[in-house]
Amino acid sequence: MFKRLGIPARSADKFVLRLPDNMRERIAEVAENDGHSMNWAIVSRLDRSMAQEGVSGDALIAPDKAALSLNELELLQQFRQLSPPRQDALIALIGQNQEAKREKAPAPE
């Protein structure tokens, strides 16, 4: 997770946490379903929660992105790593796909 955000893992804070019964399993299930690590599942949820409560600081996820799913956040991170010409090409490709879907849809009567 931290590598994707440009934060060296060795410099990231480490914190030992005691979890209630079954919490670890629940976190593992959520992380697996979202295709992320348990660390990402925990940190992203904490970050979103603090952003929603208006806790100031250097949020990993900006408040306007708090409603995004973990998959959407991953897509956003990957998109930002693309060069501007590749970003433009991807946007054009998505636009073409949406236009093709509209053309295939039956016309309203």
Score class of each variant (00 low, 15 high):
95 G>R: 07
54 G>K: 06
19 L>D: 06
36 H>S: 14
101 K>N: 08
107 A>D: 09
26 R>E: 10
20 P>W: 12
44 S>P: 01
5 L>Q: 11
104 K>R: 11
82 L>E: 06
4 R>A: 03
30 V>E: 08
93 L>V: 04
1 M>I: 11
31 A>G: 02
4 R>F: 11
16 V>H: 14
11 S>C: 09
94 I>Y: 09
90 L>G: 05
29 E>G: 10
99 E>H: 10
83 S>R: 06
56 S>A: 08
34 D>I: 00
87 Q>I: 00
1 M>K: 10
11 S>Q: 15
91 I>S: 12
5 L>K: 12
81 Q>M: 10
13 D>V: 11
53 E>C: 04
70 L>N: 04
54 G>A: 03
37 S>Q: 13
65 K>S: 05
3 K>P: 04
50 M>H: 11
27 I>R: 05
14 K>A: 11
74 E>Y: 11
66 A>W: 02
87 Q>A: 05
84 P>M: 02
52 Q>F: 15
17 L>T: 09
108 P>T: 08
17 L>W: 12
102 R>W: 01
32 E>H: 14
7 I>F: 12
102 R>T: 03
68 L>H: 00
100 A>E: 12
15 F>M: 15
40 W>N: 10
58 D>V: 06
78 Q>L: 10
103 E>G: 04
102 R>A: 09
35 G>T: 06
76 L>H: 09
101 K>M: 09
47 D>V: 04
98 Q>M: 12
34 D>W: 05
94 I>L: 13
14 K>V: 09
1 M>C: 07
96 Q>S: 14
20 P>R: 15
60 L>P: 00
52 Q>W: 04
12 A>C: 12
32 E>T: 13
22 N>D: 08
79 F>P: 03
106 P>C: 00
48 R>E: 01
15 F>A: 13
87 Q>R: 05
88 D>T: 00
12 A>W: 05
27 I>C: 07
18 R>F: 11
87 Q>P: 00
103 E>P: 01
66 A>S: 09
66 A>T: 05
20 P>G: 15
46 L>K: 08
39 N>A: 14
63 P>K: 01
58 D>R: 15
103 E>Y: 03
33 N>T: 08
11 S>D: 14
43 V>K: 03
13 D>T: 15
76 L>G: 13
28 A>W: 10
94 I>H: 14
23 M>E: 08
25 E>G: 12
93 L>Y: 07
5 L>A: 03
20 P>A: 15
14 K>M: 12
99 E>V: 03
76 L>W: 08
64 D>K: 12
18 R>M: 06
10 R>L: 12
106 P>K: 08
54 G>P: 10
46 L>I: 13
50 M>Q: 13
17 L>H: 11
36 H>G: 05
43 V>P: 03
42 I>N: 03
43 V>I: 08
83 S>T: 01
46 L>D: 06
90 L>F: 07
27 I>F: 01
6 G>N: 02
14 K>D: 03
18 R>P: 00
102 R>S: 01
101 K>A: 10
84 P>N: 04
75 L>M: 09
102 R>K: 10
52 Q>T: 11
69 S>E: 01
